[in-house]
Amino acid sequence: MQLDKTIAVFLGMLAGLSAHGHESSTAAMQEMEGDPQRGKVALQQYACTGCHVIPGVVGANSLVGPPLDRMAKRVYIAGSLPNTPENMIRWLRHPQEIASLSAMPDLGVNERDARDMAAYLYTLD
């Protein structure tokens, strides 16, 4: 009986997390107030292309970090951070504060560029 309740609670939490992962890209971009086209340029300027495969970004074919395809559909960022616009921006700006053992370096991304980069990544669904 207790196990059934635990499973039901877990499934409910999982459904809640998954629901955001399927939020429309447009809604996420509006929430962030980011510009996807500027974000695409910023991903190149901050050399994200040196570590990631990023669809639509020229030269982004490295396999050091994970591929960034389908970011709009993912439930988590960096494997444990719920995929929300706010968390995406935090991750892009200060990855080492969130996961100190991550290979993702702090590149000094400013707020505006992080919003734009996140907006572009949320077009990848």
Rank of each mutant, 00 (worst) to 15 (best):
22 H>E: 08
22 H>S: 11
22 H>C: 04
24 S>P: 03
25 S>Q: 05
25 S>L: 03
25 S>G: 15
25 S>I: 04
26 T>Q: 14
29 M>F: 00
29 M>I: 15
30 Q>C: 00
30 Q>A: 12
31 E>P: 01
32 M>Y: 01
34 G>S: 07
35 D>L: 00
37 Q>V: 13
37 Q>N: 12
38 R>N: 14
38 R>Y: 00
38 R>D: 12
38 R>S: 14
39 G>I: 06
39 G>N: 05
40 K>L: 11
40 K>Q: 15
40 K>C: 05
41 V>Y: 02
41 V>G: 01
42 A>F: 05
42 A>D: 09
43 L>D: 03
43 L>S: 04
44 Q>R: 13
46 Y>R: 06
47 A>Q: 14
47 A>P: 00
49 T>A: 13
49 T>S: 14
49 T>G: 08
50 G>Y: 09
51 C>T: 03
52 H>R: 04
53 V>R: 14
53 V>F: 09
53 V>K: 15
54 I>V: 11
54 I>N: 06
56 G>Y: 01
56 G>C: 08
57 V>E: 02
58 V>N: 14
58 V>T: 14
60 A>T: 05
60 A>I: 01
60 A>L: 05
61 N>M: 08
61 N>V: 10
63 L>H: 14
63 L>M: 13
64 V>N: 09
64 V>W: 03
65 G>R: 03
66 P>S: 14
66 P>M: 12
66 P>C: 04
66 P>W: 03
67 P>L: 07
67 P>V: 09
68 L>F: 04
69 D>W: 08
69 D>S: 15
70 R>K: 15
70 R>L: 11
72 A>R: 13
75 V>F: 05
75 V>I: 15
75 V>D: 08
75 V>A: 06
75 V>Q: 13
77 I>M: 02
78 A>L: 10
79 G>W: 02
80 S>L: 06
81 L>Y: 02
81 L>R: 07
81 L>C: 06
82 P>I: 04
82 P>T: 09
82 P>E: 07
83 N>S: 11
83 N>P: 10
85 P>H: 07
85 P>L: 07
86 E>V: 13
86 E>P: 02
88 M>F: 04
88 M>V: 07
88 M>C: 09
90 R>G: 08
90 R>I: 00
90 R>T: 10
90 R>Y: 03
91 W>M: 07
91 W>I: 01
91 W>T: 04
91 W>E: 00
92 L>R: 03
93 R>N: 06
93 R>M: 15
93 R>E: 14
95 P>C: 02
96 Q>Y: 01
97 E>D: 14
98 I>F: 05
98 I>M: 09
99 A>Y: 10
99 A>L: 11
100 S>Q: 12
101 L>N: 11
103 A>F: 05
103 A>H: 10
103 A>N: 12
104 M>E: 02
104 M>W: 01
